[in-house]
């Protein structure tokens, strides 16, 4: 075996190992009850794919058809001063949660966070009172566009409990995909409780 062949095979092996490692951390979330971060429970009716949790945030991403086609994000115990999203650009300043926010302001904070990561023309379309288990909450819907011009729709449910934010956020392309799992997401939000 020549040196170049060795290098090529070693490279392939390394890439394979990296690929397998990353695959291992993407898991299926089967229908049934799910407890997130020992802080929130939801009832799932379809099989979702669970992305690895991003340690920099308090969020867990879920999808059925791929993150560009539908994204459900669970956030629990987000403390004051913490962002919902993160960036590697250290020159930028992220929107952060404030524990004295009113629930209407939480909706704005959520949409600002989506704007920060590139969603354009984010617009709140409805904000209504709701319950997160026993905790006072709001549910809101919104629209936005991604840079390529594709229009998105979204809905979310938010509550502040013990000065920490609990948020279930869903968004998908307005055409076809949003409606495809809308009922499932409504059911998940209806079932959500704070532990």
């Amino acid at each position: 075996m020549t040196f170049s062949t060795f290098c090529r095979r070693a490279g392939v092996a390394l890439l394979g190992a990296l690929f397998l490692t990353s695959c291992a951390s993407v898991t299926a979330l089967e229908p049934g009850p799910y407890t997130y971060d020992k802080a929130m429970t939801i009832q799932v009716g379809e099989t979702w794919t669970k992305y690895p949790r991003v340690n920099r945030t308090k969020s867990q991403g879920l999808t059925i058809d791929g993150s560009a086609l539908n994204t459900l994000s669970l956030t629990a115990k987000l403390k004051a001063g913490a962002p919902l999203i993160y960036t590697l650009d250290r020159e930028k300043i992220l929107p952060v949660f404030g524990s004295d926010m009113l629930l209407g302001e939480v909706a704005e904070f959520t949409l600002d966070s989506l704007s920060f990561i590139g969603m354009q023309n984010t617009t709140l379309t409805e904000l209504t009172p709701d319950q997160f288990g026993d905790v006072e909450a709001v549910r809101f819907t919104f629209t936005g566009d991604v840079a390529s011009g594709l229009s998105y729709q979204g809905m979310a449910k938010a509550a502040i409990h013990d000065e920490q934010l609990y948020l279930i956020l869903y968004y998908a392309p307005a055409e076809y995909y949003y409606g495809l799992h809308e009922q499932e997401v409504q059911t998940i939000m209806d079932s959500a409780t704070i532990l």
């Binding site: 629930l103 209407g104 909706a107 709140l124 379309t125 409805e126 904000l127 209504t128 009172p129 709001v138 809101f140």
Partner: peptide
């Protein structure tokens, strides 16, 4: 306004 329900409550 989209937040009417919350304000009205």
């Amino acid at each position: 306004s989209p937040d009417r329900a919350v304000v009205q409550l």
